[in-house]
Design a protein around this nucleic acid. Structure first.
Length: 843
DNA sequence: GAGCACTGC
């Protein structure tokens, strides 16, 4: 039986930084508008000249708050009985029809208004409500930037845009960005309800819309638009001045995605620049974060205004000199040690704040949520909103443990025996393997429990788990049963698990880090940061006071690095740089980064872009680069695609199919039992190609696409993920459209060209892959191992590859990952002289 | 003979 493991208890009550919100809105019953006609208002006779949506209205789909947090895909396009207004207008409706429409419309509007009024008391009870005047005031006059810290549950994401809507400066649209698609869509739905408006493209009069990949739902009257960060960056390609917006609200900044870092840089340039492209229209920026990192954000924006001062000395003299911007505020204060490359397992948790803290003496309490010392600027305001979080007790291990799975097992049963129901347990682990191992152990131990003890229901939760299995965490537990949710990091931000009062935190996370020198991604288990530990803890206090069992000592906690390293310091920068170049940033080293990447990382990425032909020798973006930047692909994959459009290659459609596969999750299901594995091998045999994984993917997509009766059954029969295949078809469609727009793909197939032999076609495809992945090539050595041609590193073909165990003179691979050793994933066999030709052409 | 955390255009 498990024994007591936690002896020390730390009843922590000091305010900490707060966990980020993942959006699970509690109260959105959707009006039954699906069966109604969408003619809410008498239209002026100028219907939109083109549809503003690719999807006639997801709000017409049944929707529950639960699945809003977990549905990975936006609602798929479907005909839902919505009649476009234009069609109605030209249809010559009879008077009785018109009367019925009118009645429907009134009923619908009545419903919307009723709903809006019903929601008002809940809005007024939000912590942010009493700050409305302060927030409005903070953006008036010369104040263009507001830094807003709001804890979970403060209501900032839904209320701030509504507060700003009627401000005199707000003539245009308000954009509000989110890191995830589901959040953008469900927040838009909620705000539409609160405003008594229809959502998105469902009515031309709707005031609230959203825009995410594959699903854009806005109307001509949209005033508040929720979008993913990537979508706003995409819009900036067409409109660098963001002319349709009066305000941009950047939400969840503490998550520090690469896209948010780029957005903040662009917005700083815009707001502190001359704004001449905006024709005098003001632009207000609100930066919202759940953690009190105001100081770094303040310095970041303030530096922009000070830079402006030196260029245009007539502006700005209201900046408090106490906050002396120094050159080092361009350098990182997040304490990233750049020696990571050599020793991934080195003391990465030991963090020194030497890097700039000298200049920050007075305000160096970066990790406290206490209000920082005066941050004063005539252009920047700050606002702090309290949240709604129940207290959570923290319990540490007295001694460090080597085996966090075992320690978690003990803690789970300690909680289960000691604490009364209700109160589910959420356990944070590192990956599928540890989740499944602990699941087995928990079930095993549960068999030995006395009959009078409540039962235990162990539920795994990780992204690769099928949706139906993920949904189980939302089902109420049977009577006298405690749910134990065994989760990866997915539960930290993306999925809100209800009913949790106990959190067990392993203190570890599996994290991906790009290593410039080797040009590969490492996927390693590492200690979490203090802020991640606080976020995990917060998951226990959402519904009632809770407890957090940390499977490490308090000393270990204090030695963790204060913040999670921002993604931009961990990833391959080539995509980010191309994004900047395509939006007119010439000097990427001088770009305002909140945390500047290392010079080495920037140089490595610039070199890659140069090799791809995306940049010219002088560092300017080329035509090819501009095309690649418009595609939703990494620069390498984009280059492969552009190559395929070359008349000499002539295999664009095939390459699109392959690239679509490479940009979604694994399509071949991971099977557990030996029996299933053998079945799958037999069933997939017809799909496998001896040329390697890429042509195997092509064969799979083509077989799936030519299946017209039952694609789901086809996928099951071949042990292929149907969900992945649906995503692939979406991506494929989008890429084909974009290739047509970019004039890479002509709509009519050229019939005059001689058909390629299947061999020639395969060779062409492989040549295209080589063009993008020239750096990812290796040759067979006499001892049977593979060595990369650039860099001379040993690399093994990953066992998931169809080429695993095969010997071929050279390989090209689309992924280079280090887990236990260096692996090539996504591998094709090529001729050595082809590789030589490509490499020679680059130098 | 391994086993991939999580987003996004």
């Amino acid at each position: 039986m498990p024994e007591r493991v936690h002896t020390r208890f730390n009843g922590e009550s000091r305010p900490e930084r707060f966990p980020p919100k993942s959006v699970t809105l509690q109260d959105h019953s959707t009006p039954p508008q699906g069966k109604k006609r969408k003619r809410a208002e008498k239209l002026p006779n100028s219907p939109p000249s083109k549809p503003h949506s690719t999807n006639p209205g997801p709000n017409t789909l049944p929707h529950s708050p639960k699945n809003s947090a977990i549905v990975g895909n936006a609602p798929r396009n479907q005909a839902n009985g919505v009649i476009p207004d234009r069609q109605l207008n030209s249809n010559g409706r009879t008077p009785s029809n018109a009367r019925r429409d009118n009645k429907d419309m009134k009923a619908q509007y009545g419903h919307l208004i009723k709903r809006r009024d019903a929601l008002l008391p809940a809005r007024k009870a939000l912590p942010i409500w009493s700050h409305a005047a302060e927030i409005k005031e903070g953006l008036r006059g010369p104040k263009d930037v507001m830094l807003l810290v709001g804890e979970t549950g403060s209501g900032k994401s839904t209320q701030v845009p509504q507060f700003l809507l009627d401000e005199p400066w707000c003539k245009g649209c308000i954009a509000i960005t989110q890191p995830r698609r589901v959040a953008a869509i469900s927040l838009a739905r909620r705000v539409a309800e609160e405003m008594g408006s229809l959502l998105g493209s469902s009515s031309p009069s709707s005031k609230v819309g959203y825009s995410v990949r594959f699903d854009n739902s806005t109307s001509p009257n949209t005033r508040i638009k929720f979008l993913t960060e990537g979508m706003l960056l995409q819009e900036m390609l067409r409109d660098p001045w963001l002319k349709q917006y009066s305000a941009v609200i950047v939400d969840e900044v503490h998550e520090r995605s690469v896209n948010v870092d780029l957005l903040l840089g662009f917005l700083r340039n815009l707001v502190t620049g001359d704004k001449k492209g905006r024709k005098g229209m003001p632009l207000k920026v609100v930066v919202m974060s759940a953690t009190a990192d105001t100081e770094s954000l303040f310095k970041f924006f303030n530096a922009g205004y000070q830079g402006r001062k030196s260029e245009h000395s007539q502006i700005s003299n209201g900046i408090d000199r106490k906050l002396d911007r120094t050159e080092d505020s361009e350098s990182s204060w997040s304490g990233i040690s750049s020696s990571e490359d050599e020793k991934p397992k080195a003391k990465s948790s030991k963090i020194t704040q030497t890097n700039g803290s000298l200049k920050l003496k007075a305000n160096s309490n970066v990790n406290n949520s206490a209000e920082p010392a005066a941050l004063v600027s005539k252009f920047i305001s700050t606002c702090y909103i309290e949240g709604r979080q129940y207290p959570v007790k923290i319990l540490y291990l007295p001694e460090p443990t080597q085996d966090f799975v075992e320690a978690a097992l003990k803690s789970i049963f300690q909680i289960h025996y000691k604490e009364p129901l209700p109160g589910d347990v959420l356990v944070f682990l590192t990956g599928q393997d540890t989740v499944e191992a602990l699941e087995r152990l928990v079930n095993e131990y549960a068999l030995g429990m006395d009959a009078d003890v409540p039962k235990i229901l162990a539920l795994p939760l990780f992204a690769a788990l099928p949706q139906s299995a993920q949904q189980k965490i939302f089902h109420p537990a049977p009577p006298k049963t405690r749910k134990i949710i065994l989760a990866t990091n997915i539960a930290e931000t993306s999925v809100t698990v209800p009913g949790v009062r106990y959190v067990v935190d392993s203190g570890k996370v599996k994290i991906k880090q790009f290593r410039n020198r080797l040009g590969l991604d490492s996927l390693l288990v590492k200690p979490i940061s203090q802020s991640a530990a606080i976020q995990r803890k917060g998951r226990a206090g959402r519904e009632a006071p809770g407890q957090c069992y940390r499977l490490y000592t308090e000393k270990d906690y204090l030695e963790l690095q204060p913040r999670t390293t921002p993604e931009i310091l961990r990833c391959d920068l080539s995509h980010a740089i191309l994004t900047m170049k395509a939006r007119g940033v010439e000097d990427v080293v001088g770009f305002p980064f909140l945390d500047p990447p290392t010079r080495e990382g920037l140089e490595k990425a610039l070199l890659l872009l140069l090799q791809l032909g995306a940049l010219s020798d002088t560092g300017e973006i080329s035509d090819i680069g501009l095309k690649i930047a418009k595609l939703p692909l990494t620069p390498t994959l984009g280059r492969v695609l552009v190559e395929a459009a070359d008349p000499e290659r002539d295999c664009l459609l095939e390459i699109i199919d392959i690239i679509s596969c490479l940009s979604v999750e694994n399509i071949f299901l991971n099977l557990i039992t030996e029996e299933k594995k053998e079945d799958a091998e037999v069933a997939r045999q017809e799909l496998y190609r001896r040329e390697g994984d890429h042509l195997t993917l092509l064969a799979t997509v083509q077989a799936y696409a030519s299946e017209h009766t039952d694609r789901k059954a086809w996928a099951e029969k071949h042990y292929v993920s149907h969900r992945a295949m649906q995503n692939i078809m979406d991506v494929r469609k989008q890429l084909r459209q974009q290739c047509t727009q970019l004039k890479l793909l002509s709509q009519s197939v050229d019939m005059s060209a001689a058909p390629q032999s299947s061999q020639a076609r395969s060779n062409n495809i492989l040549h295209c892959l080589l063009r993008g992945f020239a750096a990812n090539t290796a040759r067979l050595m006499p001892d049977g191992s593979y060595r990369t041609l650039l860099g001379n590193q040993t690399v093994a073909i990953h066992p998931s590859s169809v080429l695993f165990g095969r010997k071929t003179e050279a390989i090209v691979f689309s992924e280079f990952v280090f887990t236990n050793k260096s692996y090539a994933r996504g591998v094709s066999a090529v001729q050595l002289d082809w590789v030589g030709e490509v490499l020679a052409s680059l130098s």
